[in-house]
């Protein structure tokens, strides 16, 4: 398990989230969306979280924020457990989420001002109407939205502007920690760059800590201090961003990094991609032993028998693979 330093703002130990799925008229089966995941995020740090569709990234974010009740494991904030109703309520003011889809995550019948003001209303964070309005305009200014837009409806805005509205709303309660779930994936490249810069700037100004979920490795590489890789509900590797990008240890991360489409013809054509065969197994029928073994070019019989332990392979570099030492 990753070493937990005292400076960790967020810490997750053996987090589990199992969904119960009906597999017959009266039968149900647990879908292990997140299965024994542990990590810590330092104050002011950005931890990137990558992995294939359905591997459990969003579920980690939502469970971490107690939007889902964890099936198992512990969540610590500033070293203190978050468990009781009071602890969860206090935590929810300090930790929040920005969603992937700026189109569907905003209520089309609400004005920009009401969308941003809603968290303030819920937590009764103002003394007067004027105070509320002032705070809303301040937030809009922070994300580069024009104050004239306050009375307009979300559908009147472009994708990039809607994402700004979502970010302003997330900032309403002065959070310390934000789960950013694919916040730029739906945006065009030129707009994406504007929003990425805003995340960077807000972090500097407000000392924010991010869990940044995305499937675009180059975006995650750009914004993160460290990167965690998930596969089928498990964390398979975690290390410093530069380190994991340049020297991945786990066979899955190796193929992932080699497959990144490099926006440079000479590099892209010289690149040796490790192309995996086969498809991602269903989490309802996860393979025995190592979850990656059905697609792993290095799998042996031992890989089918035991689940490899997630352990430190080099200083600060964690991975879960039986053959780490041999293969690297």
């Amino acid at each position: 398990m990753p070493e937990i330093t005292e400076k960790s703002l967020i810490e997750v130990r053996h987090l589990k989230q199992y969904f119960s799925i009906n597999v017959g008229m009266f039968k149900s089966k647990p879908l292990k969306a997140v299965d024994d995941v542990s990590f810590a995020i330092r104050k002011g740090e950005t931890l990137g979280l990558v992995g294939e569709s359905g591997c459990g990234k969003t579920t980690v974010g939502r469970t971490l924020l107690h939007l889902y009740k964890p099936t198992g494991g512990e969540i610590l904030y500033n070293g203190q457990p978050v468990q009781t109703r009071e602890e969860i309520n206090a935590f929810r003011k300090k930790a929040t989420m920005v969603f992937q889809d700026p189109y569907s995550s905003l209520n089309p019948r609400m004005t920009v001002s009401d969308i941003i003001g809603e968290p303030l209303d819920i937590h009764k964070m103002y003394g007067s109407k004027a105070e509320r309005q002032e705070r809303i305009l301040e937030l809009m200014d922070k994300v580069g939205l024009n104050s004239e837009h306050a009375a307009r409806y979300a559908h009147e805005f472009s994708g990039g502007q809607r994402q700004r509205i979502g970010i302003a709303r997330a900032l309403a309660l002065d959070p310390e920690f934000i789960v950013c779930d694919e916040p730029v994936s739906a945006l065009d490249v030129s707009i994406q760059a504007q929003v990425i810069n805003m995340f960077d700037e807000l972090q500097d100004q407000l000392e924010l800590t991010y869990l940044f979920i995305a499937h675009d490795i180059l975006v995650v590489r750009h914004i993160s201090d460290r990167i965690a890789v998930m596969y089928l509900g498990k964390m398979v590797e975690l290390a410093d961003a530069k380190e994991i990008y340049e020297h991945p240890l786990h066979p899955y991360t190796k193929s992932l990094m080699s497959a990144v489409p490099q926006p440079d013809p000479r590099i892209a054509r010289a690149n040796k991609r490790i192309v995996l065969s086969g498809d991602i197994p269903s989490p309802l029928n996860a393979p025995s032993g190592c979850p990656f073994r059905t697609r792993c070019p290095h799998a042996t019989e031992a890989c089918a028998e035991a689940m490899p332990e997630f352990k430190e392979a080099a200083p600060g570099h964690f991975a879960a693979c039986h053959r780490i030492a041999e293969l690297n």
Binding site: S190, A193, Q194, E201, L218, V219, I223, K242, D264
Partner: peptide, 16 residues
């Protein structure tokens, strides 16, 4: 405006 391995730690230059 596209992030690459070399842009980490810097600001991107978006199209305004």
């Amino acid at each position: 405006s596209i992030p690459t391995a070399d842009t980490a730690g810097t600001r991107l230059q978006p199209i305004t």
